[in-house]
Every structure is written in structure tokens, then in C-alpha cells.
């Protein structure tokens, strides 16, 4: 008699534990859904709001005081040029730093300090980078509120991302490859150039794309260095500006970028501008989604194809 009661009690406990288990399974899906649904709502809402504004003119018009004539020409050209500067600055620096840390750096306290430093940099708010750029690039170096300043700022911002991705890609290469190369009498540089870099290039590319996708959406640091929000002209083409015009005049031109254009439209009270903001936001989201999607797909391909 006593025993059946005990068994009953134990069964109750098991049943309760199983019920909680099943409940949590549902809870997990629900929690996931909060994220998914928010994103879906955001995306669909913006698409519905902005779709009416997106046509060829939207891409070829300058911003305007009249909402229905306003476009994003200067914004997307600005974004493109700033990204060019960012990429040219961040990729060589980041890859070189990653290679150095993995293949060259001696194991000592200095390397440790650098490593902790890079981890910490990833946690510094982006607006602080903006303040740095304001003090350093804009005033001390005298670059002004230009494409060059903005590109370099974003390059600093994504440098940790590129460095970390490079290091991870390099670390995934088995030691045997290096040993084989050294056994044939190769120097460290030859090993890096002929083996390490080619084998890690896809991984590095993934990191670069993710970093660039982040840079495209960054607004705060660029506002901080003082990008103008109303730009109704394009940066000068090479050799066309006021003489003495040079190849790189556009580097020092004032500019605007997509997120700033969107911020500008969002902060206006008229409803028509909100529509423009939705349209610009929609294009911006599509751009970052495409870039991040490419990166994820690349990584997936990479994981499947690598057999050492």
C-alpha cells in the first residue's frame, strides 16, 4: 500500500517535470517568434509605406524640400564612396594585423595586451569612435567633414571585426600545412603568401563583408563628425573641379550617406517625409540583408567544402 503511494508520488513528479519540459519547448519557439515577428513587421511595414516612393526617380533625384521630389542620389553615391575608403583602409590593415598576430607575433605580454585591447575595442560604443574622429581626423589632421574622414572613421570601427575574422580563418588552417611549407625551406612570408592567405581568403572575405554591412548602417559616428544632411550635389569627378583639380578631390568633398538621409527624413514632422524615410530604410535594409546573406552563404559553403 505504502509502495503504490510512493510510486504515485514519483509519477507525479515525473509528469510535472515532463510538463515543464514541453512547456519550455513551446516557450522557446514563442521567444524566437518575438524576434522573427518584429523583424517581419518592420520589414513589411516599411515596404508598404515606402514602396510607393521607390522608382527610378527616387534614385536619381537629389534631396528636396518637397517630399515628392526628394531622392537619394547624393546619399547612395556618398555611401558608395565612403565604403570604398573604408574598405581600402580597413582590409589591408586588418588582414595584416591578423596575419601578424597569428603567424609572426611572439608570445609575450605585449601580444596579450594587444589581444585584450582588440576585444575591448569591439565593446566601445560607435559614437565614441565618432568623437575620436571629430578630434583627430576633422580638427587635428584637418581633413574636414569629408568623405575621407568618414571612411577612415568607419574603417577604425570595423577594424576589430576584420582582425578577428582573419585570425579565426587562419587558425582553422591545420599546422601540417605550415610544417610542410617550412620543411621545403620556405620563409614565414612565403608560407603566408602562398599558403595561409589563399586558404583563409574565403573566411576573411566573410568577415570583411559582415564588417562592411555594419559600416553601411552606422549613423552615429558619421553624424558626430558633422556630415551635412542636405546635400544637393555630387562630389566632384576626378580632374573636373575648380583648378588645380586632382584625381582625389572627391575625398575632401562634403557628403551625406543613406542612414543620415533617413535620419533627416525621420526627424521631420511632415508625413510625406516619413514615407521617404520608409523607402530609404527599405533600401538600406535590403542592402545590409544582401551583404549579410552573402556572408552567411559563403561561410556555409566554406564549411561544407573544406576537407583538409
Amino acid at each position: 500500500m505504502m509502495q503504490t503511494q510512493d510510486i504515485q508520488a514519483i509519477r507525479d513528479i515525473i509528469r510535472r517535470a515532463k510538463r515543464w519540459d514541453a512547456f519550455f519547448g513551446v516557450l522557446g519557439i514563442l521567444a524566437l517568434m518575438v524576434g522573427v515577428l518584429t523583424f517581419m513587421t518592420l520589414f513589411v511595414d516599411m515596404a508598404i509605406q515606402g514602396m510607393g516612393r521607390i522608382d527610378a526617380n527616387f534614385f536619381t533625384n537629389f534631396p528636396s524640400r518637397r517630399a515628392e521630389h526628394a531622392g537619394i542620389l547624393s546619399a547612395w553615391v556618398g555611401t558608395l564612396l565612403v565604403m570604398l575608403v573604408t574598405g581600402l583602409a580597413a582590409v589591408p590593415l586588418g588582414v595584416a594585423a591578423g596575419v601578424y598576430l597569428e603567424e609572426y607575433a611572439p608570445k609575450n605580454w605585449l601580444t596579450d595586451v594587444i589581444e585584450i585591447n582588440i576585444t575591448n575595442l569591439a565593446g566601445v560604443p560607435s559614437i565614441v569612435y565618432g568623437l575620436l574622429a571629430l578630434g583627430l581626423f576633422v580638427y587635428q589632421f584637418g581633413f574636414g567633414q569629408s568623405i575621407l574622414s568618414a571612411g577612415l572613421t568607419l574603417a577604425l570601427l570595423i577594424l576589430p571585426v576584420v582582425i578577428v575574422a582573419t585570425r579565426e580563418a587562419i587558425r582553422a588552417i591545420p599546422q601540417i600545412i605550415r610544417e610542410g611549407s617550412y620543411a621545403c625551406g620556405a620563409t614565414t612570408w612565403q608560407t603566408v603568401k602562398d599558403h595561409i592567405l589563399p586558404y583563409s581568403s574565403a573566411g576573411i572575405l566573410t568577415g570583411v563583408i559582415i564588417g562592411m554591412a555594419r559600416a553601411i548602417g552606422e549613423t552615429a559616428p558619421i553624424i558626430t563628425i558633422g556630415a551635412l544632411t542636405f546635400i544637393a550635389f555630387l562630389p566632384p569627378l576626378p580632374f573636373t573641379g575648380v583648378p588645380p583639380a586632382g584625381l582625389l578631390d572627391w575625398l575632401f568633398a562634403p557628403f551625406t550617406v543613406m542612414p543620415i538621409q533617413m535620419f533627416n527624413w525621420t526627424s521631420r514632422p511632415e508625413a510625406a517625409f516619413q514615407t521617404n524615410a520608409a523607402a530609404a530604410g527599405f533600401i538600406l535594409v535590403l542592402m545590409t540583408l544582401a551583404m549579410n546573406g552573402t556572408a552567411i552563404w559563403l561561410r556555409y559553403r566554406l564549411r561544407k567544402n573544406i576537407t583538409w
Binding site: 518592420l42 559582415i210 548602417g217 520608409a278 540583408l289 551583404m291 552567411i296
Partner: peptide, 24 residues
């Protein structure tokens, strides 16, 4: 499916989230 999706979610520019908070 969920992991890459979460990554995409993390990649959405914050200005877009701000717009969403304000108007939606």
C-alpha cells in the same frame, strides 16, 4: 535556419529600428 536569421536580425541598421520604434 534560426542561427543565420538571428545574425541577419543583428545586422539591421539601428536607424531603421529607431524609425520603427517611432512610427510603429
Amino acid at each position: 535556419i534560426a542561427k543565420p536569421f538571428l545574425e541577419l536580425l543583428g545586422g539591421v541598421p539601428t536607424i531603421v529600428y529607431g524609425y520603427f520604434a517611432l512610427v510603429f
